[in-house]
Design a protein around this nucleic acid. Structure first.
Length: 635
DNA sequence: AAAAAAT
């Protein structure tokens, strides 16, 4: 084997695991060397951005080729820092990735240097027999391939949500997890899924199965290739599903676990082809998935692991019927048989109740204050009349530019039309920008995102399509040109900055019509120890607590994010209160080891805030808990 | 009252 094994312990190859594309071949119980599996499959992959991707690698001293006699760059063991140098792993299986080209230079992709920013984050747990958290990745029995990938991705230390959620998920337990934006939720559900697929399903035959549509009686029949993934990850936007797919591929690199993505707005035929090559983990948006299931190209009957990212969005009014259909009416094994994991930064109480339909004996985790922002994000609110917003924005951008900042700035507006209008106006005024919203065709959406990420057009004007989940490195400033009506949307929007332990800035333009949001905004900012402009307080008297004129929560107005599992305040028999404080809360705090802000950080001059003095005082849920019982009232 | 998600 050309692989350099000399400097590390032998790499155990998952013994009987067959990569999906080899599973239907007549083989004995053979150990397939991963390298062999790789080289045969790579040939089939589509072209994608390989050529251009290589351009990013130019400056790097070439290693002696040690991989399979090919010139193509692969990870090698002596490469200390592959991701850091923007060398994408050669995707081991299908290579169709437009997003490969999108990678930009990031000197600290996983926030290694600032990861201690999370040390003080308290984590609340509830449920039966909660598996104890870990303090390092090495305590977890990942398969070696995944462990290597974690190192390659430079994850040195688990974030609080990862410390708790990974052991829970590894134990096979259902999970509802709340954690602040940018704190590593994707890895928290991907690592256990990949590990358990390798560990528990390596005997499994083929995920692509020939279905006898004539009833299996033998003889000639029409056969359809149907993909039967072991794991399903659902996300609310196409771009987010792409991003999760990219992440999951990095994590499953060379493990033989195949990850495929399916979303609308792109040719379905290509996605079918990807599925036919075999799929263990399917990442999808709901609409396209339902379409594929109805065309009998995908079956969920083998799904053992289900993850909903941005789970509260997936269960809100717009999405809930579709998601319910997928989870409850389409061959998906029932709760208790499959493992279900829900993740979000915000989790309104009523959505928690809906979600519990999908869960069985689940564990609730809350890292930090549920529904709050991280205090790594400095929040500013400025009073601006609607008519003045454009000029105000222009002044702000000019000041930023004069300051020598080339920081990426994400501008949120209310409407799709508004996004286009503002974008063209900004471009006219000399600020290169692009717009992204749901009326653009997928190509345009992706082009806008790519151009923004690369810094080519450092201003992106967006609707809420970009509010959730997207991990765009170096977004230094989020501007709420129009504030959303729902405070949760605000939390997700500003969460596009201040990610992975890095600081960020969020500016909101507050006008009279935002009065209903004032109270919720003030409370949120107080939680995050932000300075509240005095004039804003005057709006809170007329505005509703946790205000959102929001449709989905109107029946429950007065109750927003559950800092705790809603079960606590509810009539929940079989509930285990042992090992918890008398108020039902199990807490753990982490002493700070060092300041997350280094003096040489280019953004250290951004306004920052101090942390909550006391978890008990600061925890959003403590206040909510009482109201939960009173106000939600179970209809 | 708006946005997202299938064609």
């Amino acid at each position: 084997m050309p692989w350099n094994e000399s400097t590390r312990s032998p790499r155990p190859i998952p013994s009987a695991y067959l990569p999906p594309h080899l599973r239907h071949q007549p083989t004995f119980t053979v150990t397939i060397p991963t390298s062999l599996a790789r080289s045969s499959s790579r040939r089939g992959g589509g072209g994608g951005g390989r050529g251009r991707g290589r351009g990013f690698r130019g400056g790097r001293a070439p290693n002696p080729p040690r991989s399979y006699g090919r010139s193509r760059r692969n990870f090698s063991d002596d490469d200390p820092n592959p991701y850091n140098q923007k060398i994408m792993p050669e995707p081991p299986f299908d290579i169709s990735e437009k997003f490969d080209e999108l990678e930009v230079i990031d000197d600290d992709p996983s926030g290694v240097n600032n990861i201690n920013a999370y040390d003080e984050t308290p984590v609340e747990t509830s449920g039966f027999d909660v598996p104890p958290p870990v303090t390092s990745f090495s305590e977890i029995d990942f398969c070696s391939g995944l462990s290597d990938n974690i190192k390659r991705c430079q994850f040195v230390k688990p974030t609080p949500i990862q410390r708790y959620a990974i052991p829970v998920a590894m134990a096979g337990r259902d999970l509802m997890a709340c954690a602040q934006t940018g704190s590593g939720k994707t890895a928290a559900f991907c690592f256990p899924i990949i590990t358990r697929i390798l560990r528990d399903h390596h005997q499994l035959k083929s995920p692509t199965k020939k279905i006898d549509r004539n009833g299996g009686g033998g003889g000639f029949s029409l056969k359809t290739i149907m993909a039967c993934p072991l794991a399903l990850i659902l996300a609310p936007t196409r771009e987010l599903s792409c991003q999760i797919h990219e992440e999951a591929k990095k994590f499953s690199y060379k493990t033989g676990v195949k990850v495929v993505v399916a979303y609308g707005g792109a040719p379905i035929v290509q996605q079918f082809r990807n599925l036919e090559k075999g799929v263990d983990i399917l990442v999808a948006t709901p609409g396209r998935l339902v379409d594929m299931i109805e065309r009998a190209k995908v079956s969920l009957k083998n799904v053992k692991y289900l993850a909903l990212d941005e789970a509260d969005r997936m269960l809100d009014m717009g999405f809930e019927p579709q998601v319910r259909k997928i989870v409850q009416q389409m061959e998906m094994p029932p709760a208790g048989v499959r493992q279900t994991m829900l993740f979000s930064a915000t989790f309104p109480i009523e959505i928690q109740r809906l979600a519990s339909d999908f869960l069985s004996n689940y564990i609730f985790l809350a890292a930090g204050k549920v529904g709050s922002s991280t205090d790594l994000i400095a929040q500013r609110v400025e009073y601006v009349h609607d008519a003045d917003k454009k000029n105000h924005l222009l002044n702000l951008l000019r000041a930023q530019r004069a300051n020598g900042k080339h920081a990426l700035t994400l501008v949120f507006v209310e409407t799709k039309k508004g996004a286009d209008a503002l974008q063209s106006w900004l471009s006219m005024k000399g600020f290169p920008s692009m717009a992204i919203h749901g009326d653009k065709v997928q190509m345009e959406r992706e082009r806008a995102l790519k151009s923004f990420r690369s810094g080519l057009t450092p201003i992106l004007v967006a609707t809420d399509v970009a509010a959730r989940g997207l991990d765009i490195p170096h977004v230094a400033h989020v501007i709420n040109f129009d504030l959303p009506r729902d405070i949760g949307d605000y939390v997700h929007r500003i969460g596009r900055t201040g990610r992975a332990g890095k600081p960020g800035l969020a500016t909101a333009f507050f006008s009279d019509k935002n009065a209903p949001l004032a109270k919720a905004l003030v409370e949120l900012m107080q939680e995050a120890n932000q300075e509240i402009p005095p004039w804003l307080n005057e709006y809170t008297e007329t505005s509703h607590a946790y205000g959102s004129g929001g449709s989905r929560s109107s029946r429950f107005s007065g109750v927003k994010f559950g800092g705790h599992n809603y079960r606590r305040g509810a009539d929940n028999e079989n509930y285990d209160y042992s090992n918890q404080f008398e108020d039902g809360t199990a807490l753990e705090s982490y002493p700070s080891q060092s300041s997350p802000y280094s003096s040489h950080d280019s953004r250290a001059d951004f306004p920052t805030s101090s942390r909550a003095d006391s978890f008990h005082e600061g925890f959003y849920g403590h206040m909510l808990d009482h109201r939960t019982v009173v106000a939600s009232g179970w209809d």
